[in-house]
Design a binder for these strands. Structure first.
Lengths: 192, 192
DNA sequence: GTCTATATCAGGATAGAC
DNA sequence: GTCTATCCTGATATAGAC
């Protein structure tokens, strides 16, 4: 049983708060309270809010890639793996812990904070594009489908699905958008 | 020439700041500075930050519906009107002034602030669903396409496209996602 | 490593003069 | 209607004791 030290508790508290309230909405005081750590403790372990946030964002990005990869690396056709990714269990109303940071002006304005966000979304698009290409190679999708465009569409569907869900206070709209994407993709598969 | 009064300048300043920095990132002081108005002036015209934000959000929502309607009500096939909407001129890196509010915890937590956001996105989905239905009625799209799911997908594509663009600091990813959506939709049109 | 004390500025608003 | 004064709390740290 690895007891969680103060350092890790600060990072976990920051990860939660960044997800819930974003960077501008997260104060050092709130972090300290959630982590059960004092002022001095936080400033001993981290240089300040940006430093702590960077550590938290990097950790969250890593976890997201892991979760996505688990859905994408399974057996099955390209369509099935894409479906597995799109319909994987999510806490839809919480939104994407990485994507939401793009709406944070202080994150976008800071290259060091934006980098892990950008890298994660690019990794995801590349990963999906490769799967689309596999589907193309297997004759699963009709030729002419652009892997990069399709991958961007799929990631955008998920990110935008969160927006629809949060605006209505219900996950239903997220699911509709995903079904809309899968339906268009699936019909194409029928032709192959 | 209608001279803009203090009331309107406060609303305009708030609209800009909400777009740039969101609700939690926008302070009364910043609003006053941008509007060139004093403390007392602001609290004379509005009860406080939520009141002013509500007025600003309602105004922004109205403008967005107008801009969307202008793209959607044109002549042309259903596909062409959808294409006109997706590719209409946008300041992509600024994101959606309505959709971005869904990432704001204080907006989502306040039913009065969330309502205009939800209504706008629902209006847009309904509007697009009707156009998809028209395309279906004209035999433009293959039967079996679900208008509501497709509409949700299209709105999600735009909202998610902003996320991709802002994370990379370039509008390119937005355009890719849109082309991905149009390509899938277009191939379907070929079958009709 | 953690604590408490202290500092400065901003957030969000009210009171009352003009 | 607009201004200035004032209020209290929170944001974001630094200093130095323990």
């Amino acid at each position: 049983m690895s007891t969680q030290g103060t350092h890790d508790r600060l990072v976990e508290a920051t990860r939660e708060l960044l997800w819930e309230r974003g960077y501008v909405g997260t104060s050092p005081k709130a972090i300290q309270e959630r982590a059960g750590a004092g002022q001095g403790s936080m400033y001993h372990h981290f240089k300040g809010k940006p430093d702590l946030a960077l550590t938290a964002i990097a950790r969250t990005a890593e976890e997201l890639r892991g979760a996505a990869e688990r859905a994408l690396c399974g057996a099955g056709s390209a369509y099935e793996r894409i479906e597995a990714y799109l319909t994987r269990e999510r806490d839809v109303l919480r939104g994407c812990p990485v994507g939401r940071l793009t709406m944070d002006p202080d994150v976008v304005a800071n290259d060091r904070l934006r980098a892990p966000v950008d890298e994660t979304l690019h990794w995801l698009r590349d990963r999906l594009a490769k799967i689309v290409q596999e589907g193309l190679d297997q004759g699963e999708f009709a030729p002419g489908l652009d892997p990069d465009e399709t991958a961007a569409l799929l990631v955008a569907t998920v990110q935008g699905g969160y927006v629809l869900a949060r605006s209505s206070g219900s996950p239903a709209a997220f699911d509709m958008a995903v079904r809309g994407a899968l339906a268009l993709l699936h019909r194409r598969a029928d032709r192959g």
